[in-house]
Simulated assay, not measured.
Amino acid sequence: MTPTLALLHTSPVHVPVFEGLRDQDHPGLALRHLVHEELLARAGAEGPEAVADAVQELLVRAVAEGADAVLCTCSTIGAVTEARAAAVGIPLVRVDRPMAAAAVAAGRRVAVVATLESTLGPTRALVEDEAARAGRPVDVTTVLVEGAWERFEAGDRAGHVRLIADAVDALEGVDAVVLAQASMAQAADHATLAVPVLSSPRPGLRAAVAVLRVGADAKS
Rank of each mutant, 00 (worst) to 15 (best):
D53F: 00
E57I: 05
L59F: 02
L59S: 02
R61T: 15
R61I: 03
A62M: 04
A62V: 02
A62C: 03
V63R: 15
A64K: 13
E65T: 06
G66A: 11
G66T: 12
G66Y: 11
G66S: 13
A67C: 08
A67T: 10
A67E: 07
D68L: 04
L71H: 03
L71A: 03
C72Y: 01
C72E: 02
C72R: 01
T73E: 10
T73F: 11
C74H: 01
C74Y: 00
C74M: 03
S75P: 12
S75E: 10
S75H: 12
S75G: 15
I77W: 04
G78T: 07
A79G: 13
V80A: 12
T81C: 13
A83F: 01
A83R: 15
R84E: 15
A85M: 06
A85F: 05
A86Y: 00
V88K: 08
I90Y: 07
V93N: 00
V93M: 13
R94A: 02
R94N: 06
D96H: 02
R97S: 09
P98C: 11
A102E: 14
A103W: 05
A103C: 06
A103F: 06
A105S: 09
R108N: 00
V110N: 01
V110K: 02
A111S: 13
V112Y: 10
V112L: 10
V112K: 10
V113Q: 11
A114L: 12
T115P: 01
T115C: 02
L116G: 05
E117K: 14
S118Q: 13
T119S: 15
L120F: 03
L120W: 04
G121K: 11
P122C: 13
P122K: 14
P122G: 14
T123S: 12
T123R: 09
R124G: 15
R124N: 05
R124M: 07
A125K: 07
V127Y: 07
E128W: 07
D129Y: 07
E130M: 12
E130D: 02
A131S: 02
A132D: 14
A132R: 15
R133W: 01
